[in-house]
Design a protein around this nucleic acid. Sequence first.
DNA 1: ATGGTTGGAGCCCAA
Length: 263
Amino acid sequence: MKIASWNVNSLNVRLPHLERWCAEARPDIVALQETKLEDAKFPVAALEGAGYRSVYSGQKTYNGVAILARAPIGEVEHGIAGFDDPQRRVLSATVGEPGSAQALRIVNLYVVNGQSVGSEKYAYKLDWLAKVGAFLAEEIRRHPRLVVMGDFNIAPDDRDVHDPAAWHEQVLCSTPERDALRRLLDIGLVDSFRLFNEDGGHYSWWDYRQGAFRRNLGLRIDLVLVSDALRARCRRAWIERELRTWERASDHTPVVLELEDDC
DNA sequence: ATGGTTGGAGCCCAA
């Protein structure tokens, strides 16, 4: 069972990449961010042809999240109850046969970027993360088999940063952001990549500018978090770095978690 | 050097 998260930075542009990667890697569940598509324009038929059901929450130009799965998708929840946010950044669903004990609860997050420390968008980011924390505390209580994945726009620690000195207390790396991520993990989640990789230098995003990918100037900001109930079922976690070399690549690559087959 | 590249909208904004 393979579970993946990928910020595609426009599904219109990246649909061929997604189809190719799904055919090659055959992930069972994929969370997409920055689809930048209104729901009416979501490529349901193309993905069905590739073997995936899809649920989505999108808007024109910005944001947009989707969950694809080879198994049935149910209990779809858009956004966060009681938080009337026009930005489409949160989508949750249960994947698996209805009523099955093997079903997984998936929460897909496109965390606010925050622009720069001290900006209005940064304040919105911290407020948004606090609301997500309250939401996840309830989700994990109702759904112990929980996967929270997405573009977190936070590098968890300095191992996840190519140049920690340059990024020190900058947006995506600042202490308040890392503390906010820590509070999400404290609910009972673990960064699956770190179950298998302790060293630095593994990144999921590289800026389009300055030849950042060629020079491996990246950050690891795309994460697959799993609840304690799933922790012992994790078999392998990795970053699909090779997709960043493809023609017209997204600035992010997929991050993948493999769970035991009976999961 | 406060730069640069990409995507989407529409002649700038967000990342």
